[in-house]
Simulated assay, not measured.
Amino acid sequence: MTTDFHDVSTFDGYRPGDLVRARPVFVSQLSGAAGAWQVVYASANSRSELIPASGIVLTPEVVARPGDTAILVYSPGFRGLGGICTPSQLLAIGAEPDTTGIAAALARGWVVAIPDGQGLGITGGGPHTFLAARAGARTVLDLARAVYRRADLGVAVAPVLAWGYADGGRAVAAAGELHPWYAPEVDLRGVAAGAVASDLAALAPAFSRGRGAGLGLAALIGLSHAYDQLPLRDVLNEAGQRAAMEAEHLTGSELLERFPQPVSHWCREPDPWNDHWWRRVLELETLAHTRPVIPLHLYHGSADAIVPVSAGRRTLIAYRQRGTQVSWREYEAGHHATAASATGDVLARLGETLTGPPPRERARPSGEGEHASRP
Results as ranks from 00 to 15, higher is better:
4 D>Y: 03
5 F>T: 03
10 T>F: 09
18 D>L: 05
28 S>V: 14
32 G>D: 10
33 A>F: 00
40 V>P: 01
42 A>D: 04
47 R>I: 03
50 L>S: 10
54 S>C: 04
64 A>V: 05
65 R>K: 11
68 D>R: 06
72 L>P: 01
77 G>V: 00
79 R>M: 14
80 G>K: 03
87 P>I: 01
94 G>W: 08
104 A>W: 07
104 A>M: 09
116 D>C: 09
117 G>R: 00
120 L>E: 05
121 G>F: 03
127 P>F: 12
141 L>M: 08
151 A>I: 08
151 A>F: 07
158 A>Y: 01
173 A>S: 14
175 A>M: 04
180 P>G: 09
185 E>M: 11
186 V>K: 01
191 V>E: 02
193 A>T: 04
197 A>L: 05
198 S>I: 04
198 S>Y: 04
209 R>E: 15
210 G>A: 14
217 L>W: 12
219 A>W: 11
220 L>P: 14
222 G>A: 12
224 S>K: 13
241 Q>I: 12
243 A>L: 05
246 E>H: 02
248 E>F: 01
254 E>L: 09
255 L>D: 07
265 H>T: 14
268 R>G: 04
275 D>R: 12
277 W>F: 15
278 W>Q: 13
286 T>V: 09
286 T>C: 12
287 L>E: 00
289 H>D: 01
292 P>H: 06
297 H>Y: 09
298 L>D: 06
299 Y>M: 09
300 H>F: 09
305 A>G: 08
306 I>N: 10
314 R>N: 14
316 L>N: 08
321 Q>R: 13
323 G>I: 02
325 Q>R: 14
331 Y>N: 10
342 A>T: 08
352 E>I: 07
353 T>I: 01
358 P>T: 13
362 R>S: 11
370 E>G: 12
372 A>G: 05
375 P>H: 07
